[in-house]
């Protein structure tokens, strides 16, 4: 079990979120959305706190978290890498780019490197189709990326 301790002020904010929603089990999804916004992800401890507040089993909370793909239990890396898989990017080889990130970083989509530096995800169209294939790292946009660029991009980030 991960032993990451959440700072008290964040716990208080989480409790506030639950209270704002009246600690209603019916509000679980909305609460989890806000919690994920607050923490960037939904670690076990957060799920346990929410379960206790709403008076529901933690297994139910976990069930909901794993059911919806927009919830995640992995913290984002220092450099969150997103590869666009919209139609335009896809047809112009985004998958190969993604595979190259996978290969070099040794992680899959939805995962974070053990040192916490990089995380990998795929996106639906970001609206920059002219630049396809597009990779987003943090706020920065990389256009017309080919697999051969990947190593260089990662070097730049170090």
């Amino acid at each position: 079990m991960s032993e990451i301790k959440i700072p008290q002020n964040k716990i208080d904010q989480l409790l506030d979120i639950c209270n704002e929603h009246g600690n209603q089990p019916g509000e679980l999804i909305n609460i989890l959305h806000k919690a994920q916004h607050l923490f960037g992800y939904l670690p076990q401890e957060v799920q346990r706190i929410v379960a206790r507040q709403l008076g529901i089993p933690v297994s139910k909370v976990y069930g909901v978290v794993t059911f919806y793909s927009f919830f995640t239990m992995t913290p984002k890396g220092e450099h969150p890498i997103s590869v666009c898989m919209g139609t335009a990017c896809y047809v112009r080889g985004a998958e190969k780019v993604l595979d190259e990130f996978r290969r070099i970083l040794g992680i899959n989509v939805g995962e974070t490197t053990p040192d916490g530096k990089y995380s990998l995800s795929s996106l639906r169209c970001v609206g920059a189709c002219g630049l396809a294939p597009v990779v987003l790292i943090g706020e920065k946009v990389y256009g017309r990326v080919v697999p051969g660029d990947v190593e260089k991009i990662l070097k730049e980030l170090e």
Binding site: I56, P57, V58, S59, Y62, G63, T66, F67, Y68
Partner: peptide, 8 residues
């Protein structure tokens, strides 16, 4: 509540 449906 030890058991619940998880994943999809």
């Amino acid at each position: 509540g030890a058991l619940a449906a998880v994943n999809r």
